[in-house]
Nucleic acid binder design. Structure first.
Lengths: 211, 211
DNA sequence: CAGTGGTCTAGACCACACG
DNA sequence: GTGTGGTCTAGACCACTGC
């Protein structure tokens, strides 16, 4: 399924965070095509996907203009994620079966083990497994799609932030409480916990941005 | 800005609802290209946008497979919309100024007038103005983008549903209460009202689908 | 190991800005 | 009117499928 478009999109995000492209650059298809060794079409499609994720706005004329990844942008996408994750957690708590719960515990333990080993790359992957698990139980593919769109960006930001044990321990603690809410089929609790969990991530990234 | 891609996307959605394309059809680029008198690229991009909106899933191989627009799909997207509109209404209530309020009242009165004149096409447009107004006050462009993606689909569904005065009066009543919440800067009330407003739309469309 | 069909390349096209 | 640069056309390419 994946063409080179997917790779180009990921590389562009990493380059945005790394500061290779700045908001005032022109960013023409020719220029990007040269940089990523590709012709117009794959670049064009990658840009359109990135536009759908909010990284580009259509500027004057028909040009693509890079959006600044600033506090407002982080705030906006995490507020949206919080609302959706909260809703999904509520649905998941209502539907959660014994089997679902075991899968969640597996992901949870896997992440805890990775953090214990100081393997933060693995911990990031396990973290995503945990959140994907909730989405799977909630079974709302359309809402899940919205959560998935910024994933590359979030992973890259976390890697750049270089969080240590304190941050990860807090995340794991939160996950533990969310699992309890799922186990009790307590929808209100799950919604509140999941929503707050995302807000914390927002604050951490905003804090990190000041540097 | 708009190329023919945008038109093709809208026409495909209308054709999906009209039953021109059914979930089991092959839907190759060649076939669609012949049908919409275009070459691969614009079709391909339209399909990719529609994939991002959940209308297509990537089937076996690398083929595009049309998703069935069924009760589950409607439920999923409206549950997601409810969560986001609720969050936006909460933010809007906190930020709403006197000037913002006047703009909302303008859109509100415009829709009421359109319904009084039985001009439901105009009422649909005014309805969108109302919801766009809330998004504008909330000033979360990234969340708003998520709300905008299904708009063509929703407009087409409403037109197909052929709602009469009773339905529109209910919508306008809801809008009136939301405006009151904005006026009082009552964030909790706005969130509850906006969330419920979307759930009602979901139930109405599900009801409509049985026929 | 052919067939099917999505993906990429090259280049013409043309809309929109600016002088 | 001229130029810049996004958009579309045509066709080659090649991954995946199923015979």
């Amino acid at each position: 399924m994946k063409g080179r478009r997917t790779n180009i999109k990921d590389r562009i995000i990493q380059d945005i965070i790394a500061g290779v492209w700045s908001p005032d650059d022109k960013l023409t298809l020719d220029q990007l095509g040269r940089h990523y060794s590709s012709s117009h079409t794959p670049i064009r499609e990658a840009l359109r996907e990135l536009q759908g994720e909010g990284f580009f706005r259509t500027g004057a004329g028909r040009t693509f203009r890079l959006r600044e990844v600033d506090r407002e942008f982080i705030t906006n996408i995490f507020d949206a994620r919080s609302a959706i994750e909260s809703m999904l957690a509520r649905a998941a708590a209502q539907r959660c079966t014994k089997n679902d719960l075991e899968n969640m515990l597996l992901a949870h333990d896997g992440m805890a083990a990775a953090v214990r080993d100081r393997d933060y790359a693995l911990a990031g992957i396990k973290n995503r497994l945990f959140h994907d698990g909730i989405s799977a139980i909630a079974a709302n593919g359309e809402a899940t799609r919205v959560l998935n769109i910024h994933w590359v960006f979030i992973m890259t930001m976390w890697a750049a932030a270089g969080y240590g044990p304190e941050r990860y321990d807090g995340v794991i603690q939160d996950h533990g409480y969310i699992i309890r809410a799922l186990a009790e089929n307590d929808a209100d609790a799950a919604a509140a916990l999941a929503g707050a969990h995302v807000i914390k991530a927002k604050f951490e990234l905003l804090e990190q941005m000041k540097k």
